[in-house]
Amino acid sequence: MIRVVIADDQQLIRAGFRSLLEAEPDIEIVGEAGTAAEAVSVVTRTRPDVVLMDIRMPDGDGLWATEQLVAKKELAETHIVIVTTFELDEYVGRAIRAGASGFLVKDTEPAEFIRAVRVVAAGDALLSPGVTRRLLERISSQLHEAPDATILSAITEREREVLALVGRGMTNDEIGRELFLSPLTAKTHVSRIMSKLAARDRVQLVVVAYETGLVRPGE
Rank of each mutant, 00 (worst) to 15 (best):
A149Q: 12
E157S: 10
E161P: 02
Q142T: 11
H189Q: 10
E157Q: 09
Q204L: 11
K187W: 00
T150P: 07
K187L: 13
V166S: 04
D173Q: 13
A154E: 04
R202I: 13
A146T: 03
R177H: 13
T171A: 15
G167E: 01
R158C: 01
F180Y: 11
E145P: 10
K196D: 09
Q142E: 05
I139K: 06
E178I: 03
E145H: 04
H144N: 12
A199G: 11
G167D: 00
S141I: 06
E159P: 03
Q142D: 15
R177Q: 06
E178G: 05
G176K: 04
G176I: 10
L184A: 14
L181F: 13
S182Y: 08
L136C: 03
L143G: 05
H189N: 08
M194V: 02
E178Y: 12
L197R: 07
S182C: 07
A149L: 03
I175S: 04
R168G: 12
N172W: 02
R133E: 12
E174I: 05
T171R: 08
I155G: 02
R134K: 13
A199V: 06
D148H: 05
K196L: 09
M170D: 02
T188S: 10
R160E: 13
R200C: 05
T188L: 07
L181S: 04
A199M: 05
R158N: 13
N172Y: 09
G169N: 12
S140I: 02
E145T: 08
R138T: 00
D148M: 12
D148L: 05
E161F: 03
L205T: 00
A146C: 14
S141K: 15
S140K: 09
I193A: 06
I151W: 08
K187D: 02
N172F: 06
E145G: 10
N172L: 04
P183D: 01
M170K: 15
S153M: 06
L184N: 07
G176Y: 05
K187I: 03
D201S: 12
R160N: 09
P147F: 08
V166L: 08
S191T: 08
Q204V: 06
R192K: 15
H189S: 02
K196H: 12
K187Q: 15
E157Y: 09
G167C: 03
L136K: 02
I193M: 14
R168V: 06
